[in-house]
Each structure stands twice: as C-alpha cells, then as structure tokens.
Simulated assay, not measured.
Amino acid sequence: MPLRDMALGVLVAVLWGLNFVAIKIGVQEVPPLALTVVRFALTAALIVPFTRMTRQALPWVILLSFTLGTMHFALLFYGMNGVGGGTAAILIQLGVPFSTILAAIFLKDHLGGWRIFGLGLAFGGAAVLAGEPTLPALGPFLVLVLSAFSWAASNLLIKRVSSVTPLAISGWMALFATPQIALWSLLLEHNQVDAVLNASWHLWASMTYIILGSSVIAYTLWYRLLSLYPVSQVVPLNLLSPLVGIAASIAFLGESLTWERVLGGFLTIGGVGLIIYRQSLPRANHKTPPASELERGSWE
C-alpha cells in the first residue's frame, strides 16, 4: 500500500478514535437515545435525497436499521452514558471476535487454534476492563458488549446489500432507525426536547463531527481503501482507533489511565490483532468467505 493511502487509513482510525470523545460530550448534555435520534435524522436528511435504494435491498436495509441502527448505535450511545470514552473504544473492538464466532457458526468458517487463542485474549481483556474501578456500574459495560455483538451480526446482513453503495446504506438505515429509537427514547427518557433545544454549541459541534467526520468522511475513505486493497491490508489500520480513543479521552475528557484499562486494552487489542492476522493468511480448501470479509462493515 502506498504511503499516501496508508496515511488515509491512519486518518480514518484517528477520526473514529476521536468519535468516542464526541459521543461522550454529546451524551453529557442530551439523553443518549434522543441524541441518537438527532444523529440519524440529520444523517438521513443529508444522504437519502441524493441516493437510491433498490427494491431487493430494501428489506435487508430495514432489518439493518434494527440490528445496526437500534441495537448497535443506540446501545453504543446509551452505554457510553455510563462508561469512559477510552473503555468504550476498547470494548467496541469485540465486534471482530464476535464476527469470527458468527462466521464459524453460520458460514462454517474454520477457527483454528491461533484464532481461538485470540478470542480468549480479546474476551479476557474485556473481563479485566469489567473490574475497572472507574466503572460506575456493570450495566453500561454489558450494553457496550451487546452493541459490539450487534455490529458483528449486522455485518452478516451487510453482505446481502452489496449492490447498494455504503453511503446509501448509511442514509436509508438511519431513516428507518430514527422512528424506532425515538419510540425507545419516549419510553425510557424524559426532557429530551428541552435538552436538545437548550444544548450548547459543544453538543452541536460534537454532532457535526459525528455525522460529517466520523460517518461521511471516514466511511468514504474506508470503503475507497477496501475497494483498492485486500481487507487484510486495510483492517489492521483500524487497531489504531482504540489507542486514539484512549489518548483523546485522557487529553480532552480528563479520564485516568488505570492498570485495568492498560492491561485490558492490551489483551483485547492484541487478541483482535491476532485474529485479523490469522484471517489474512491463505487457507487451503476454504469454501466460505473468511470472517475478515465481514469486517467490511460499519465502525463508529
């Protein structure tokens, strides 16, 4: 990969890493589900009028609006209301081992000893993070783990809509997810409208970054790289995003660097890296796409 394109891959990882800080700033002012509604409503308004959706892909995109929109993104925002940005950046990496497990179950992808070891490292790191003293409650932690699993499940569905551009998928998925999450916000939250109307410029600056920086710009660059190079060359660059998320959370949010976060992050990121590396190796008589192909899906 040329240096220029590698730099673009690093830029994407930085944009996604900083996104955890932007989300954390947002949920401190507006209830997390309501914030997700605002994000998706604005995203749909920006993308849907300029993209098209095929009749064949529409049912899958509607299903994605639940698994990716409601179950991944809404739970991500909801969980980050009670977990630090650095911890969230690490936990979301569990989407890769979850993808590996789902590929083994549904695509009959052979795991092998090294990838099983990587799974153990990744989930062991998550267990260490669960004991972090700065974690106010276990509930938000488990919500983020479920969010990572929902991302992995969504990647199986994204393969069904390969005929539609990723930007169109993002916009139309946001359109259908908005009323779903709005309903949950009405049931579980209060004073949402007042919070949005009285939000400071920090909220709108973070929302602008989440939509334009993390979603539109980062995804456009990411899928361009995936169209030019093998997944095995592109996906490892994303391992930089949790490191950026941790550093940015310390710098901008004043979070502390506990030994649980260091050890848990090292184990989780190391396990994910091992899984990605082993999946990039050619395997004989491989009749189904490796789980690494699932990693073409969405990140934050």
Results as ranks from 00 to 15, higher is better:
residue 185 S to D: 00
residue 207 M to G: 01
residue 159 K to G: 13
residue 39 R to A: 01
residue 10 V to G: 05
residue 98 F to S: 08
residue 278 R to H: 10
residue 187 L to T: 14
residue 48 V to L: 09
residue 51 T to F: 03
residue 260 E to T: 07
residue 129 L to D: 10
residue 203 L to Q: 10
residue 41 A to P: 02
residue 256 S to H: 12
residue 263 L to M: 04
residue 155 N to H: 12
residue 196 V to D: 10
residue 177 A to N: 08
residue 78 Y to F: 05
residue 69 G to M: 02
residue 272 V to M: 12
residue 214 S to Q: 00
residue 96 V to E: 14
residue 247 A to Y: 11
residue 285 N to A: 07
residue 24 K to Q: 14
residue 255 E to A: 01
residue 138 L to F: 03
residue 49 P to K: 10
residue 137 A to W: 09
residue 251 A to S: 06
residue 65 S to M: 04
residue 64 L to W: 04
residue 153 A to E: 04
residue 218 A to T: 09
residue 131 G to Y: 08
residue 217 I to H: 04
residue 240 L to H: 08
residue 93 Q to R: 05
residue 214 S to G: 11
residue 76 L to K: 07
residue 281 L to H: 11
residue 18 L to G: 07
residue 104 A to L: 15
residue 183 L to I: 11
residue 143 V to A: 03
residue 71 M to H: 04
residue 258 T to D: 12
residue 159 K to F: 09
residue 102 L to M: 08
residue 11 L to E: 10
residue 229 Y to Q: 13
residue 56 Q to W: 08
residue 93 Q to H: 06
residue 201 W to S: 04
residue 140 P to Q: 14
residue 187 L to F: 08
residue 44 A to V: 06
residue 161 V to Q: 09
residue 91 L to A: 04
residue 258 T to N: 13
residue 93 Q to I: 00
residue 76 L to I: 14
residue 226 L to I: 10
residue 25 I to R: 09
residue 175 L to R: 12
residue 177 A to T: 14
residue 94 L to I: 13
residue 94 L to M: 05
residue 40 F to E: 03
residue 290 P to L: 00
residue 233 Q to Y: 06
residue 102 L to E: 06
residue 107 L to H: 09
residue 106 F to N: 02
residue 83 V to S: 15
residue 164 V to P: 02
residue 37 V to K: 01
residue 182 A to Q: 01
residue 33 L to S: 03
residue 185 S to W: 13
residue 169 I to G: 13
residue 247 A to L: 03
residue 164 V to D: 12
residue 192 Q to H: 03
residue 260 E to R: 11
residue 114 W to P: 02
residue 193 V to K: 01
residue 145 V to T: 13
residue 40 F to G: 00
residue 45 A to H: 09
residue 132 E to N: 07
residue 238 N to L: 09
residue 69 G to P: 01
residue 47 I to V: 13
residue 166 P to I: 08
residue 281 L to Y: 14
residue 185 S to H: 05
residue 206 S to N: 07
residue 7 A to V: 13
residue 137 A to M: 07
residue 26 G to C: 05
residue 124 G to N: 08
residue 237 L to W: 06
residue 87 T to V: 07
residue 1 M to E: 12
residue 9 G to K: 06
residue 97 P to I: 15
residue 286 H to F: 03
residue 275 I to P: 03
residue 299 W to E: 03
residue 126 A to N: 13
residue 170 S to D: 13
residue 245 G to T: 00
residue 130 A to M: 11
residue 102 L to W: 02
residue 157 L to W: 13
residue 109 D to I: 01
residue 216 V to S: 05
residue 18 L to M: 10
residue 294 L to F: 02
residue 49 P to F: 07
residue 279 Q to K: 13
residue 255 E to G: 11
residue 32 P to A: 11
residue 34 A to T: 11
residue 247 A to W: 02
residue 93 Q to K: 06
residue 230 P to W: 01
residue 11 L to Q: 06
residue 26 G to L: 00
residue 55 R to K: 12
residue 9 G to A: 15
residue 35 L to Y: 05
residue 234 V to R: 00
residue 262 V to Y: 10
residue 40 F to P: 00
residue 201 W to K: 10
residue 224 R to A: 05
residue 11 L to Y: 07
residue 234 V to P: 15
residue 265 G to P: 15
residue 242 P to S: 00
